[in-house]
Design a protein around this nucleic acid. Structure first.
Lengths: 151, 151
DNA sequence: GCACCTGAGTAGCTGCCCGCAACTCATCCG
DNA sequence: CGGATGAGTTGCGGGCAGCTACTCAGGTGC
């Protein structure tokens, strides 16, 4: 995360990257989202991340409102902390899906895995796509980008 | 980009982040995509990035096949280098759009701007969304994620 | 009661890489 | 020939990543 463009960059992408531009942050979100992990040790084991880095990243995620810390207590155990995604964190699913899709097609890997998103209960798989207001899918090649003021 | 998970991570997201997990890389792609910039100085001026970092990032983008370098010559000028997105680079538009959308809604900023994607020629705006095979939109809250082997 | 385990961190150190500024190098213009 | 411009390279300095080792609190086995 470059310090030259702070959190008040006018570009929404720069502001997003200020939060999730670090590699580990998105991977933690991914583990929370896909594997349902909530505990320090789960993230540590799953990612092989150093504990001090994990502490720092979780603190960032709490700070930024992407996760909340809750104290829970299983019977017969002492109270522990767990970290759960907030709505803001869960709505990163589009970013996660886009990255997964890109990696799967442009950086294929034997035995690789990619998160798939299913509609609750019906278990129907959902794809990420560009759609117009009339519901038609548009492949990315047919799009041009333009900077637009937020409303 | 953590060195602990190399390019051969089985997770497609980790492999994607290995390429675009750095803040500047995606911002360069964004400038190329949204503003149509192709030249060293254009990126430098638009992003305020240090030249050595820009050199390194452009080299990475060339290496990874997201951009190609071409020599061009305007009449009356000497030959220059320009950097253009490849198909792999352009297909990061989903990631860019997802990040822009997230930043716009969760990190709003007065006077902020977000890239908007329009269908070529018809100029119809296109939105990023999860859709099922029957074409229905699904809001991210109604999705559950699952790790799936690539095919 | 005491040793031990486990989960959740903290502390200290090393090295790399970011970021800045200054410099180079080639070419074109006047 | 002198200056401007575009495209970088080089040389520092500081900060954060990443590793390892340590701490601390509570529960369990004996």
């Amino acid at each position: 995360m470059p310090k030259t463009l702070g959190k008040d960059s006018t570009c929404s992408i720069a502001r997003s990257l200020e939060v999730v531009g670090d590699t580990w942050t998105l991977l933690i979100v991914r583990e929370a989202m896909v594997a349902g992990y909530t505990r320090f040790q789960e993230f540590r084991d799953a990612l092989g991340i150093a504990p001090n880095i994990l502490t720092k990243r979780l603190a960032l995620l709490l700070d930024e409102g992407l996760m909340v810390r809750r104290t829970y207590q299983e019977p017969g155990c002492r109270a522990r902390e767990e970290y759960a995604l907030t709505e803001a964190g869960r709505s990163l699913s589009l970013v996660i899906a886009a990255l997964g899709e890109w990696g799967r097609t442009h950086r294929p890997h034997p035995g690789g895995t990619t998160p798939e998103f299913l509609v609750e209960e019906s278990e129907t798989p959902a794809q990420l796509a560009f759609v117009t207001s009339d519901g038609a899918h548009v492949p990315p090649e047919r799009l041009v980008a333009r900077r637009t003021p937020d409303r």
